[in-house]
Design a protein around this nucleic acid. Structure first.
Lengths: 200, 200, 200, 200
DNA sequence: TATTAAACGAGACGGTACGTCCTGTCTTGGT
DNA sequence: ACCAAGACAGGACGTACCGTCTCGTTTAATA
């Protein structure tokens, strides 16, 4: 009888969800108003009224806190709607991503990724939630298009996905070119041109 | 002739090239042995025997110093050799980039880009030297291939270039997949498949 | 009654008396071995193992720290023993002061007084503890001698006290003449000559 | 063309008295407007347009420069006018000193004396010019009064002089009491009471 | 219901690095 | 030869955060 959880929890006061929430809220505010570089534990503690040790109980350092705050700000990593034709679906998803990232948040995500320990559990979770969901949705989309005969089987799906989603982060990171919606069409067109079924 | 320069120089003792060089050398050592996060002005000053004010006279902060040190470490951004067939030339260039970036240096470059002020003059120079030379070499390569009839004219050359070079930085930044040489072939193949001349 | 204090203490970790003590000890050592000019916050921090911010939490600057260290070094500003005849008591007190000040400490006290903010609370405390206790003891001594008929009432007691104790600091400050025990007798004799009761 | 100019003058450019004067003027300005603590070599160089090495050629450090600037500001160390009765002459001299020192300058003189190397030649000169001229004038005054029978021979003239002039510096240094003109009378009266000829 | 262990806020702790200022010395080119 | 300008190595300044550690005060599960 699956009694939910064996409830192995020591005695004592449980962690306060409210404190964690207040800290996250303050972190989001600071990210928006002051930027990634100003997101210090001290600033969050003083802005939220939460004690520093409580923050350290929930996150190992400011990067982790920033990543969790950035995850919460994720507007909607919702993948493309299933029924649309594949090229339009991919274009639409990329367009949504570009719109979502072309703000301060996009830059902050690259900063978080660059400064975080790449092997930490938190970083993995951040990557999954913020980047890889879209990339996995893209994989699904491609695979379905292949199955439906709209595309040839790509020889290296991982490389193809990185060619689709990499340009966004490249522009955010290097800043050599603005992150414009037109990029979405160009990417989708190139992918579909490269994998177009033979005669069609 | 060759009057070189009329030596327009303000009064006062000129900056010491030796001091700048010592600081850069120390910065490179620290980058290699301790990583980007340990590259502090204090550490460079103490390791190089150069005074802190002298360092601040040459660079506004540790990021700029790191960027200049990373530029100097650039092994060879030499573009592809001209005479090879275009696809092989692109593959070779990407392969060389991947080899050069798959070390600590690649990660450090993303960290520098992510943490630096994107509008600073120094950042612009860093971008040009470290990233855009390769990207521009790619542009030349593509344009020549188009002119020679090996490729169709791409509708958006900027997007195409970002699809070629973006995946490298994407993998460095997000770490979801290792930066392997096989990526070079996959990218080049995809590009040439997408832009293959009509009948072929 | 006299409920002493209900232990009014704010929240948070209380200041560490040990840290303060270690800093003071190091400050005293530096004063003795290297002099007032070498008493820097950095030196105290590094010699005592106390963090700089902790030092700044207790003292606003090196002068204040120096003053507190000098107070602690006060050997004994104990006033003269009551029962002696007044002139001998004054001579003895001056002699003790001269002996105590004719060392490095005397010079350091003038340096501290000269360099400190004259209106700060700390300076006031220093003045009271190091200088004015002796001066007030002198006042008591004079007043008792007047009451006992050994002296006439001086017209300006403040000026008289400064004539008694000023010469010591004058010599320490200007260095035109060494601070010798003979000065004690000369001062006491002059005072008692000036205020000798009429017929005597 | 550049005919040498055989005007007999030592080789090389002569030292500029103007530069020294400009530096001293700037030092005085800074002393008046910003105080002793702000009198740095850098500030003087930048305010006066004189190069730092030139300043170091004339003074070994900021204290010496401050002392020379303070000497120049000496309003009038003129001793008392000879013909007046001795007590009035002493009172008048003390009054003038008190007026001159009760400004910022008095405090600055104590700061200079306290911070300077007591054995340096410059400090000796400063002491002589700023302090001891008055004190020697006092000695002359006392000695003449003794010779004229207005005073008894003091047993320790050095101590007596320090009892006369010490109180001024004591008040400047310790700040326990303002430096008021009334002090002049009190001191003179005490001295003349102590050394009044026997029957009077 | 009382106990009790852990979480809470506050804030001090030892540190590290910051970026600035000043020191006293040393090149420069100009006069 | 001396000047101004200004760069140099060095070192202290006072501040900001780091991540850890007491404090005294809740708070809620357990006993």
């Amino acid at each position: 009888m699956s009694q939910q959880d064996t409830s192995k929890r020591g005695p004592g006061r449980p962690r306060s969800a409210a404190a964690k929430q207040k800290a996250l809220q303050a972190a989001q505010d600071i990210l928006m108003k002051q930027g990634f570089g100003r997101l210090t534990i001290e600033a969050v503690a003083s802005a939220s009224g939460v004690g520093k040790p409580t923050i350290y109980r929930n996150w190992a350092n400011a990067q982790e806190l920033a990543m969790e705050a950035l995850i919460l700000q994720s507007p909607d990593t919702a993948p493309s709607n299933g029924s649309a034709p594949p090229r339009a679906a991919l274009t639409a998803q990329l367009r949504r991503l570009i719109t979502a990232f072309a703000t301060t948040r996009g830059r902050q995500i690259t900063q978080a990724l660059a400064s975080a320990d790449p092997d930490s559990e938190f970083t993995r979770a951040f990557r999954n939630r913020v980047i890889l969901t879209s990339r996995e949705a893209g994989r699904t989309l491609i695979e379905r298009a292949v199955a439906d005969g709209h595309l040839n089987q790509p020889p290296d799906i991982e490389a193809l996905l990185d060619m689709i989603y990499g340009p966004l982060f490249f522009r955010l990171l290097a800043g050599h070119h603005p992150l414009e919606p037109a990029l979405a069409n160009a990417i989708a067109d190139t992918v579909f041109a490269a994998l177009a079924p033979s005669h069609s």
